[in-house]
Design a binder for these strands. Structure first.
Lengths: 211, 211
DNA sequence: TAGAAAACAAACCAGTTGGTATGTAAAATA
DNA sequence: TATTTTACATACCAACTGGTTTGTTTTCTA
């Protein structure tokens, strides 16, 4: 019935796409200026839409922020970290390779603006419990993915048998966030590599002693 | 109508003290809400002063923020970290003891609000080069203090001779910031201890092998 | 001790911000 | 096809915010 292929120049209505456009613009602004520093006027200006569109899809700024966490940032972490890690045959080698080439694998934004998840967590966790719960949930997903990968590495004999991979995953994640934060403050890719190498050294030191 | 009432409201004038009061109130608000989330009206409300006083001592919000970094936060890091570390006879043992008892040694604020320096760095470094330079300078002071302590530990034979204490100090600092950040987001002292133990394990693994 | 300067107080303002009320064209539905 | 619902656009505002201006009281100084 309404199945037409004609892409007319009329104002096509694609609510899902409009919603996506708003979400990604909001993510960009939040990533660059923080949640509190983000102005809704700037978000709509980037999209070329208007506030009417924004407030049609989201009831208020807070709901928009929550959706950015649940949909945009969550997707990025799964895509960049969790899925490749789950697919890797040699998880430890994959992690080390990733840590040693973060700059080229992720892009300069990691130096300029840091980690989107950690940024938002540091800013909003003490201020808004809704943010905190969502961000904490995401961290737990991330940590569990890391833990599973480390346990696989342990089964492969790349990590000593006596290591508890739960706390280890927590520490690795914390260190990684710290390294990115330091690099961001120094605005220096070198700093990221120096700190990242410290983490890699640590991971290597967990190898079972060769006999 | 001239000074008919010599009421006790004789406002005692202590400019240095007034400046201090403003600085500490500003620190408190920035620590809790971030720089962008801090309202000058709230700062003056806490002090019981007025904007006139604030703008007499500081030309604008930015200068007040800079002064908080240079005077308040810097003092705290020196007092809590650098001076005790420089005075410690066994720096490595001191560091480990500190990491294992951070919660009780520093206080609950570290869980609730995180690390004042790291918070401000993550928020403001990409937004304001003046902040970034001041915060980066402070980080370098901190890292150098750590490096000197680690080098002393190496001389004492508590750390392997082949370790380069510069990158190590950078990694330790990054990890520490990351651990505090994770604990803050989880609002959990347990998380701080779990992550902190990971860092302690790492430091212990640097010990020269016993023969 | 008189005048200048410093240290505050109080009122005010212009720009901004999140949010709303209302209008309207396109889809969905009947 | 007629009607309702969805998806936006437009215009607007009340509250707030950083900052200014002006006035008053204390302290310093010549």
């Amino acid at each position: 019935m309404t199945n037409m292929i004609e892409t007319s120049t009329r104002t096509e209505r694609k609510p899902d796409r409009t919603r996506r456009v708003i979400l990604e613009a909001a993510f960009r602004e939040i990533y660059r200026h923080g949640y509190q520093g983000t102005r809704l006027d700037d978000v709509v200006a980037i999209t070329g839409l208007t506030k009417g569109a924004l407030y049609h899809h989201f009831p208020n700024k807070q709901a928009l922020g929550y959706a950015v966490v649940d949909e945009v940032i969550r997707g990025m972490i799964h895509q960049v970290w969790l899925e490749p890690l789950a697919d890797a045959e040699d998880p430890l080698a994959h992690m080390i390779h990733f840590l040693e080439n973060m700059g080229s694998l992720i892009g300069d934004d990691i130096i300029t603006y840091g980690c989107p998840l950690n940024n938002l967590a540091q800013e909003m966790s003490p201020l808004d419990e809704g943010f905190r719960l969502r961000l904490d949930h995401l961290y737990q997903e991330w940590r569990q993915g890391l833990q599973r990968a480390l346990e696989r590495a342990r089964e492969q004999g790349h990590i000593r048998k006596d290591i508890d991979c739960g706390p280890l995953a927590a520490f690795v994640l914390a260190s990684l966030a710290g390294c990115i934060g330091v690099a961001k403050n120094a605005q220096s890719m070198d700093q990221l590599q120096i700190c990242g190498r410290g983490l890699v050294d640590y991971l290597r030191s967990l190898r079972a002693p060769m006999n």
